[in-house]
Amino acid sequence: MIGVVFKLLGRGFADLRVNPWAQTLTLAAVTLVAFLGGLFLLFLFNLNAELERARGELIFQVYWRPDADMDVVASQWEQLEHLPALAARTTYTPEQGLEALASSMGGGLDLQWLRGESPLPPTAVLAFSPDVAEEETWTRDMLAYLEHLPGVEKVHFNVVRANLARAWKGFRQHLVWPLIGFLGLVQALIVGNTVKLLLLSRRTEIEILHLVGARDWYIQLPLVVSGALHGFAGSALAVGLLKGVQYLIRDLLDFPPLNLPIVFFPWEYAAAMAGVLTLVGAFSGWVAVRR
C-alpha cells in the first residue's frame, strides 16, 4: 500500500511531462499572478515601513532636572529599555545634548565654551508602537508613569503626532491587512482556477480511472502533487523575479528629500506566499476530481 502511495506521488511528478505546452502556460500564468501579487505586496510593505518609520510611533521626550544625579538617571534609562511596546530609545546626557544641539545648527553655532557646564537637562526620547486598540489609555498611563519617575521635571508629548500614529495604525488595520488578505484570496482563486483548468485537460484520464474502479484518492494523489508543484514552482519563480526587480529599482526613490530605499520583504513573507500557492495548487488538484 505504501508502495502504491509512493508510486502515485511519483506519477504526479512524471505527469509534468504530459502536455508540456499546457503545463508551461499554466506555470507562466501562476508565476505571473504570483509576481503581480508579490509586486503589490512589495509596494505595501515598503509604504507601511516608511509610514511607520515616519508617523507610526508615539514619541515622548522626557526631561530630568538639570541637577539630577546622572548615576540615578543612567539607571532609570536602563529600566526604560524594558518598557512594553518600546520601539526606540535615544538618550542624551547634558554634554551629549549640547553636541546634538550644535550639530543640529549645522556647525554655525559654537558651544565649545559651555563644555563641562552644559545647562541642558538629561533627556530621553522614547518611541513606542502600542496596540492601537488600547492606545488612548495606554498613552495616558505611560505619560503618568514617565512624569512620576524620580528626578523627571517634565514630559513632552506631541498630540498631533499621536493622532497621526493612531490614524495610520487604524488605516493599516482596517485597510492594508484586509487588502493583503484580499490580494491573497484573488491570487488563490486565479491560481486555483488555472491549475484546475490544466487538470481538466486530463478529464479523460480521470474518467478512465473512475471507469476501471479507482477510488477517488487513487486518482487525486497524482493530481494533488501536480497542482502543488505548479503552485510551488510558480511562486518560487515569482519570488525570484520580484527579488530581481527589487534589486533593479532599489535606489529609484532613494534621493533627497524622499530617501526611500526599496527593500525586499522578509523571506518569511516569500515563504508564506509560496506555501499558500502550493496549498492552493494542491487543493485545486483535489477538487478537480470531484464529480
Binding site: T204, E207, I208, H210, L211, V212, G213, A214, R215
Partner: peptide
Amino acid sequence: PLLRRQVSVVFQDFK
C-alpha cells in the same frame, strides 16, 4: 468503484 471492478465498459471512442 467496487461495482466497476465487477462491470467493465468498452466505448465507441476507445477511451
